[in-house]
Design a protein around this nucleic acid. Structure first.
Length: 196
DNA sequence: TGCCCGATTAACT
DNA sequence: GTTAATCGGGCAA
């Protein structure tokens, strides 16, 4: 059994944590899968919610690492982030896609799709499949219903520009598991980003 | 208070 | 390829 991710895992730079989450397993209650796509957001980054300082919405980002920041996107969807770094630096990793592994039938029912590739391929889809909403904002990632397991082996990781933002568009802070078929969007080049 | 826009998705042409 | 849906956050007045 792979190691459970402890709070210390998140008490590092978001740029170290984000690629290390690729290949980790995220369970929420009885459902979940392998994390195959994430994006890094740091408070010095104009695209980050925390860039303009603390507000009611982003308060969790300014708290200690190892907690879930959940926000509503476009008035419709929910998006899940993991807060990183020492308290106050206000950085987080957006969970963008999973390869479904646990509770697939339940996730299919929630998402009303039969195509497994579309179950958890996008930040809004991940939250709908897992049953995550604003009520889960601020929950600890090392406590139920969350269960996070480190990836068992080395992983080939690709990187590229982030999706759906208009500021700092060029920064290659999106990471993926090389060759996965569950990306929300393909990586332009599946360039291995390990060791950077 | 009013206005603009967004870390999206699905359903279109 | 384009666009509607839908609403809270953030900022200007």
């Amino acid at each position: 059994m792979p190691a459970l991710l402890r709070p210390a895992f998140f008490a590092r730079s978001v740029h170290a944590v984000a690629p290390d989450l690729i290949g980790a397993t995220l369970l929420f209650g009885t459902v979940g899968g392998v994390i195959v796509e994430v994006e890094a957001y740091h408070h010095t980054d104009p695209a980050a919610h925390s860039f303009r300082g603390p507000t009611q919405r982003n308060a969790v980002m300014f708290g200690p690492p190892g907690f879930a920041y959940v926000y509503r996107s476009y008035g419709i969807h929910w998006c899940l982030n993991f807060v990183c770094e020492p308290e106050g630096s206000a950085s987080a990793v957006l969970i963008r896609a999973l390869a479904p592994s646990q509770g697939v039938a339940t996730m299919r029912r929630r998402r009303r799709v039969t195509n497994e590739r579309l179950l958890c391929s996008g930040p809004g889809r991940v939250c709908e499949a897992l049953g995550i909403s604003g009520t889960h904002n601020g929950l600890a990632l090392d406590q139920p219903p969350f269960q996070l397991f480190a990836r068992p082996d080395e992983a080939a990781i690709v990187s590229g520009p982030r999706i759906g933002i208009t500021k700092a568009v060029e920064l290659p802070w999106r990471y993926g598991l090389k060759g996965s078929r569950f990306f929300s969007k393909p990586f332009r080049e599946e360039r291995v980003a390990n060791g950077e």
